[in-house]
């Protein structure tokens, strides 16, 4: 029973454990300091790069938030204000009236407002938008590319592993620093 320590006595094992604990704290701490890479280590959020996006409709279905946290965002500054907006109207349509058979948008989320002849302002009702990118395809195929999908951060729950990014065929969803959380186009598409 000589090795049995008293309640207050430190055994060699305790001492070794203490040393190992210290080593553990120091190694985890230094690993993280090395990985933080200085000022770059800002929290990140997910965002869609409009230059890479191919408007494939996965954003509407893959997001863990329902309806999707991805919405169409309209960059008014580069919009052509077309009366016959390619995002609003189908190219094969029965007439130029805003009706279900002429509209691209399946949920009627694109609205327009008369500005002056012949210009109309298009705007998105985000409560209706499901992020299907059908209008984005229209605008980016025939128009200026002012309508683009963006992850809306009031809805995005910022999953550690974005479920849409996992399936995005264009690899267009990336981590961006939280201080610059949007990638809204400022130039018409190239």
């Amino acid at each position: 029973m000589a090795q049995q320590p008293g309640p207050d006595k430190k055994t060699r094992r305790d001492l070794l454990a203490g040393g190992a604990r210290l080593a553990g704290v120091v190694s985890v701490g230094s690993l993280l300091t090395a990985l933080a890479k200085g000022s770059k280590s800002e929290p990140t959020v997910w965002q869609i790069d409009p230059e890479k996006c191919i408007h494939c409709e996965h954003c509407a279905t893959e997001c863990v938030v329902s309806p999707s946290a991805v919405k169409c965002v309209h960059s008014y500054a580069i919009c052509g204000y077309c009366k016959l907006c390619f995002g609003l109207f189908l190219d094969k349509r029965t007439g130029n009236t805003i009706t279900a058979e002429n509209n691209r948008c399946p949920t009627d989320a694109i609205k327009r407002r008369y500005i002056e002849d012949p210009f109309y302002e298009m705007y998105i009702d985000e409560s209706l938008c499901i992020g299907c990118a059908i209008c984005v395809k229209g605008c980016n195929s025939f128009g200026n590319g002012s309508m683009n999908l963006q992850i809306r951060h009031d809805r995005c729950v910022n999953c550690n592993d974005c479920a849409i990014a996992r399936v995005c065929p264009a690899d267009a969803i990336m981590r961006v620093p939280v201080s610059r959380p949007y990638m809204i186009r400022t130039q018409p598409r190239g």
């Binding site: 965002v73 008014y76 919009c79 302002e121 809306r152 951060h153 009031d154 995005c156 910022n158 959380p181």
Partner: peptide
């Protein structure tokens, strides 16, 4: 032309 809204992340 108005500027599009940019709802900020809650994460901050």
């Amino acid at each position: 032309p108005p500027t599009p809204t940019e709802p900020q992340p809650r994460l901050d």
